[in-house]
């Protein structure tokens, strides 16, 4: 009787575990296996075991360290900005008088466009219409204020910022959706009590709303972090990793090694290293943010 009670839940999750194991596990194992070999795109039949050689060469390569640095800046920038922007928009949208109105519903639907847009399209739009130095939207607006805008994607000083902002634009709608739903769960009477006690909008936001949606913030930050960490399409279409190597994040390094340099062994070594990095960061983050307590 007791064993039947324990068996049933496992029986329900087993198909998912098996499917997940196959879908996720096989490519991961294959990537690990390939990373331990020398394999060139133009000699796919010639796979030679090299052990950890690809990893050793990778860690000795100064350009890999440069890519890690770019990836960290890009990931943190996108995560922090998208969470802040998401909180700001969701807070405004959930304000009494705005929440639930037709305009609010329309705006929420409209706001999803960047989220569902193809990332390459976002990158191309950014390059051709937003950040283009002569005819782009940003410099056009700046010029209206008498400011001579920089060559955003061509200068090493500004390319990373332009890339972060473009990707943040794409990531923010998810944060808005989750935070908007989360803020709707904050009890109205609690906010009314705070108002009676003299707490203004900002104080109520910081001392009541934020603590009550802290798990949502933690969750979204984790999702954005892992998404930005492995971002490829937007950066590739926007800057191609340049100027120089200013925006050459790890996922572009994988592409350059695997496709341009035809070195599949090394490309898989970078991919697997990325997997380990993001797994470790996620575990540390989940522990710090106590996301593991969710659902308990």
């Amino acid at each position: 009787m007791s064993s039947r009670r324990h068996f049933n839940p496992w029986a329900f999750v087993l198909p998912g575990v098996i499917a997940g194991g196959v879908i996720l596990g096989v490519p991961v194992v294959q990537a690990l296996w390939t990373s331990l070999h020398r394999l060139r795109l133009y000699r796919l039949h010639d796979q030679v075991w090299v052990g950890l050689d690809n990893y050793l060469r990778l860690w000795q390569d100064p350009l890999f360290h440069l890519s890690i640095r770019s990836t960290v800046v890009f990931t943190l920038g996108c995560t922090v900005l998208s969470v802040i922007a998401g909180l700001a928009v969701a807070s405004v949208m959930s304000t009494r008088g705005i929440r639930g109105t037709t305009a609010a519903r329309f705006f929420m639907a409209f706001y999803l466009v960047p989220f569902v847009a193809t990332q390459v399209v976002v990158g191309m739009m950014g390059r051709l219409y937003v950040w283009e130095p002569e005819y782009g939207l940003v410099n056009y607006v700046l010029a209206a204020f008498g400011i001579d805008g920089p060559m955003w994607l061509i200068s090493q000083d500004t390319a990373m910022w332009a890339t972060i902002i473009t990707n943040t634009w794409r990531l923010t709608p998810l944060a808005v959706l989750i935070f908007y739903a989360a803020l709707a769960t904050v009890p109205e009477e609690l906010l009314e009590s705070a108002e009676v006690d003299g707490a203004g909008g900002w104080k109520a936001f910081v001392q009541i709303k934020l603590p009550m949606i802290r798990y949502h913030i933690g969750f979204i930050a984790l999702i954005q972090l892992t998404s930005a960490f492995r971002e490829f399409d937007t950066v590739f279409a926007l800057t191609g990793g340049g100027p120089g190597r200013a925006t050459n994040v790890l996922s572009l390094l994988v592409y350059n090694e695997g496709i341009s340099a035809a070195n599949l062994g090394m490309a898989n070594a970078i991919s697997f290293t990325m997997l380990i990095i993001v797994a470790v960061i996620s575990l540390i983050y989940m522990r710090l943010a106590r996301l593991g307590e969710l659902g308990q």
Binding site: R40, Y42, R43, P62, L63, L66, Q156, G242, P243, G244, R245, A246, N256, S260, A261, A262, N263
Partner: peptide, 24 residues
């Protein structure tokens, strides 16, 4: 040689790019 792209084209482009931007 099939290796032309992997030893000349891409690496020479990277070389010039790294020199231009003082990456290395």
């Amino acid at each position: 040689e099939a290796e032309w792209g992997a030893v000349m084209y891409t690496p020479v482009g990277e070389f010039a790019n790294d020199v231009l931007y003082d990456t290395l």
